[in-house]
Design a protein around this nucleic acid. Structure first.
Length: 572
RNA sequence: GCGCCUGUAGUGAAGGGGUUAUCACAAGAGGUUUCCAACCUCUUGUCCCGGGUUCGAAUCCCGGCGGGCGCACCA
């Protein structure tokens, strides 16, 4: 499956032509950081724009943009501070590294709550041996923080913060604003693209595991009792699905999304819809469908926030790589933020089909009696009374306060009222379906799947067969010779084309025409326009199609029209 | 983070304790050519960084940084 030679030729091309390069190279480089060069940045922008356009086509999905610097409490609530702060023990004898809490798991009920020194004591006391070499020779447990920490503000007044490990929290923070924006109606979604940061222990595999990377995430907020259901028959083609091997459908299947949902392999209708939408996006940007599979997480590898999770994996020179995670995060995030922040704005309202009439007895503390009787504790007594579920039948009765104190409540201290109310609905915490895309990983696979090494008249020849929608340039303008008026005409045409909104063209005037076609093919420019002697006489040019090198002659208006409407290929 | 391998123009490679480090491709200037990496002339540009050994280090040694693979870790 892997061809190291092909991969190294591809990587050389990416560096040589300014697509993707190591960052800070003149200072020795930094592992896990890459630059998109002049060609790569253009591709990346178009892939991101395509992603925004794709999901934005769902009504009720909007784009937002949040800070990357995130205060600590947000990430405590999300679970990242706990999850991303594992302590690691290193074996001096063999160099192996292991999670300290796993080493002492059989000696403690909640090993993940222990501090470094407590873990160290326990390892010493129990004589825990190295799982790989059986030695008893440990370094002290070290916290392994996978988030980049910083502080907001200077000196004493500063607050701890982290660079975000995912963009998703930005959408949760804006839930109240989104709920208002969407006139308090579910479902709705918010998406953002941007950088995420993880201080990986050992970044590997080029742009597959980065320390700073581009993500694109969508949080789709739904009513769990009324999940959106889309018509899956729009996507009849089959795709490789690998359900949870520990579940009821172990194995590997070729099936449509509709079949996967109807057979119960994909449980949630909205998740099934998003799987299909994900496949559609990947094909739009030029991913080879035959190199795609959807794999359901086993329970044991589920992220801390998810209840069901599907990975979309792509096959490339690095093997199968996870590029999209589609998770049902349920109400985990909103509930946790409600608990930690004490905000009451993280819920949605659900109106009942028929209002419910409720008759209830309510206990109302009488402040004028309770106040003088209990003095400074009157507040606690009042709130304890209000929380009583059942109305007491006899007086006086004993009431227990939160700290265990027992007080005696007389009949004169409360009013018991019977209230009739009409309840027309209820508040609930929305559930969230999240597709999370690793943009860099997708770009790598776009390049991989479209990197064509072909034979051209006995010579090796390279074509990057990118979809026109994500090509770095829409076309290249080539004067056959850089003189005799062809030079001026080419520059005039270039100016005219570049004035079209959203169209990017470049010009190449150096060396032979064949060499210039080759250069353009190598970075995936789909169209080349050549100005020759005839152009000067009749205002026509030739248009060359990258993938089959065929040419047609057209007049300038035909060229401009075809470019604007994206229909150049209809000329062939 | 550990182990093994590795680092020479933009890319790919050769070489190597001693004068000015070699080659191909690429790139720039000019010429030639009426459409697919042709050809001619000229030009630019390289030993990852630091320390050590040595009269002398790009070469040997050590460390760092970067890359590949394996282990470990990882939404």
């Amino acid at each position: 499956m892997e061809d190291r030679e092909r991969m190294s030729r591809l990587v050389s091309l990416l560096r040589r032509r300014g697509l993707v390069l190591p960052s800070f190279e003149i200072y020795g480089g930094v592992s896990g950081l890459v630059d998109y060069g002049p060609v790569g940045a253009s591709i990346k922008r178009r892939v991101v724009d395509a992603w925004i356009g794709h999901w934005g086509s769902i009504t009720n999905v909007v784009e937002i943009d949040s800070p990357t610097i995130t205060p600590e409490p947000v990430l405590v609530a999300s679970g990242h501070v706990g999850e991303f702060n594992d302590k690691m023990s290193e074996c001096i004898s063999c160099g192996g590294a292991f999670r300290s809490d796993h080493l002492v798991a059989e000696f403690h009920e909640a090993p993940d709550t222990l501090s470094s020194s407590e873990l160290d004591d326990l390892i010493e006391r129990e004589g825990v041996r190295c799982p790989s070499c059986d030695a008893f020779d440990w370094k002290k447990p070290m916290p392994m923080n996978l988030m980049f920490q910083t502080s907001i503000g200077a000196m004493g007044g500063s607050r701890t913060a982290f660079l975000r490990p995912e963009t998703a929290q930005g959408m949760f923070m804006l839930f109240p604003a989104l709920y208002r924006h969407f006139r308090q109606k579910l479902p709705f979604g918010a998406m953002q693209t941007g950088r995420g940061y993880r201080n990986e222990i050992s970044p590997r595999q080029g742009m597959i595991r980065l320390r700073e990377f581009n993500m694109a995430e969508l949080e789709y907020f739904i009513d769990p009792d009324d999940p959106p259901i889309d018509d899956l028959s729009k996507w009849p083609d089959r795709v490789c699905m690998i359900p949870d091997p520990d579940g009821p459908h172990p194995g590997e299947f070729e099936m449509s999304f509709k079949e996967a949902f109807e057979s119960g392999i994909v449980k949630h209708p909205t998740v099934a819809w998003f799987l299909a939408m994900t496949m559609e996006f990947l094909e739009f940007v030029g991913i080879d469908r035959a190199k795609v599979r959807f794999r359901q997480h086993a329970g044991s590898e589920m992220a801390h926030y998810a209840s069901d999770c599907w990975d979309c994996e792509l096959m490339g020179e690095h093997g199968w790589v996870e590029v999209v995670g589609i998770a049902n995060r349920t109400c985990h995030d909103l509930e946790s933020h409600e608990e930690h922040s004490k905000s009451s704005l993280l819920r949605a309202w659900r109106t009942y089909e028929k209002p419910v009439k409720e008759k209830s007895e309510v206990i109302k503390p009488v402040g004028s009696v309770i106040g003088p009787t209990f003095r400074e504790r009157a507040g606690e007594v009042s709130s304890a009374l209000s929380k009583l579920q059942a109305t007491p039948s006899t007086f006086p009765f004993e009431l227990e306060l939160p700290d265990g104190t027992i007080v005696h409540i007389g009949e004169d201290m409360v009013n018991i009222a019977v209230e009739d109310s009409i309840v027309s609905g209820e508040y609930f915490t929305p559930h969230v379906i999240e597709p999370a895309f690793g943009i860099d990983r997708i770009i790598w696979h776009i390049l991989d799947h479209n990197y064509m090494e072909v034979d051209k008249e006995g010579e090796g020849y390279t074509i990057l067969s990118l979809k026109p929608e994500i090509a770095p340039f829409d076309l290249v303008v080539l004067p056959l010779f850089d003189k005799d008026g062809m030079d001026k005409m080419a520059r005039d045409i270039l100016t005219r084309i570049n004035s079209l909104r959203g169209i990017i063209a470049e010009i190449d005037t150096s060396r032979s025409i064949g060499r210039r076609y080759a250069r353009a093919d190598e970075i995936g420019i789909p169209w080349a326009v050549t100005i020759d002697h005839q152009s000067l006489e009749d205002n026509t040019v030739t248009v060359r199609r990258r993938d089959d090198q065929r040419q047609v002659r057209t007049d300038l208006d035909g060229l401009i029209g075809g470019l604007k409407s994206g229909s150049l290929s209809s000329m062939f």
